[in-house]
Write a protein that binds this DNA or RNA. Sequence first.
DNA 1: GTAAGTGCAAACGTTTTGCAATGAA
DNA 2: TTCATTGCAAAACGTTTGCACTTAC
Lengths: 179, 179
Amino acid sequence: MTQAPSIPGQADPLDVARRTLARYIADKGLKSTRQRDLIAETFLSQGEHLRVEQLLKLVRTLDSRVSAATVYRTMKLLSECGLASQHHFGDGQTCYEPAVGRHHHDHLICTRCHAIIEFESDRIEALQGTIARRHGFLVTHHRLELYGLCAACLASGAVAEPEKVKEKKPKPAEVPARR
Amino acid sequence: MTQAPSIPGQADPLDVARRTLARYIADKGLKSTRQRDLIAETFLSQGEHLRVEQLLKLVRTLDSRVSAATVYRTMKLLSECGLASQHHFGDGQTCYEPAVGRHHHDHLICTRCHAIIEFESDRIEALQGTIARRHGFLVTHHRLELYGLCAACLASGAVAEPEKVKEKKPKPAEVPARR
DNA sequence: GTAAGTGCAAACGTTTTGCAATGAA
DNA sequence: TTCATTGCAAAACGTTTGCACTTAC
């Protein structure tokens, strides 16, 4: 699947993340707990876009007693300390992705199989900067999402009919992108 | 507020919209009702990004018995016939904007006062096409949103602290209030 | 008269919250 | 011992739906 493009010449992102979290917890007078660690570890090592529901399922394979509330609370925490970034891809569910040791990137989202493909474009970012400047606007973050049909779905002759999103999708193999 | 950039050399967008709706209703064997007309008229003449809740409030100043369900149903209808486009700006609420006689455009969104500024960029659109092509992806629609602080909020010395979005904010310039 | 549309309330799916019990420091 | 954290269940949120009633055609 989509591999996190780690920034070269830096320490292992997972390790950086662990340390960042530990420091954040210490600084804020919070506590390190079994559930917190379990959720953070599961999320970070997954290295992918994950819906809360999926994350909860994963975590529960390791500890079936973890509650949804704790996952929500922990993901909020990870967002606050910059280890996770939150997305809403229009299916009404919150989706998180690890944010450490990663370049900023945007997304291509297949409305049929829900595949998420990442891309980066310095040129688009530059144009965004120009536009913001023109409006006297200070951009803190942005979101660029291209919706449509991925190569796999196009190949399998899919009509542009989007599915109702509920995660029972037979995901077609991802197509390697030309760069 | 943001003025709809109507396409020059065409009929009054509001009129076009009315006719489009009438035709759609006739074609589909639907019915023209008092509520439908009221909601459509209110929405279209408002000419702006409107949350369902705001729209409902507006409509209810004219007829207090209109239900939220009807507003939702009607906005779905307007979306289907291309008169409204739906947005989710990350505050968990659906927001519609009139789509007739308008160029495609993207948004700058102030995280402090929730002002929405529209912009167009052919160059960004072109780059998006290039990227999609590179991934063998067929784009049906896209979304580009730049979040941050608008000129007014910057001028009033706002810190980059985004509010919790719930709209009890003391807005510097213009204020679309909710609740 | 017949279907489509309405309002209402109840149901929905996701997320948040209050609270008593638990556990890390 | 203290106070953050947990699990649970209930609430909250925006939205959708079932249904009996109403209305446009």
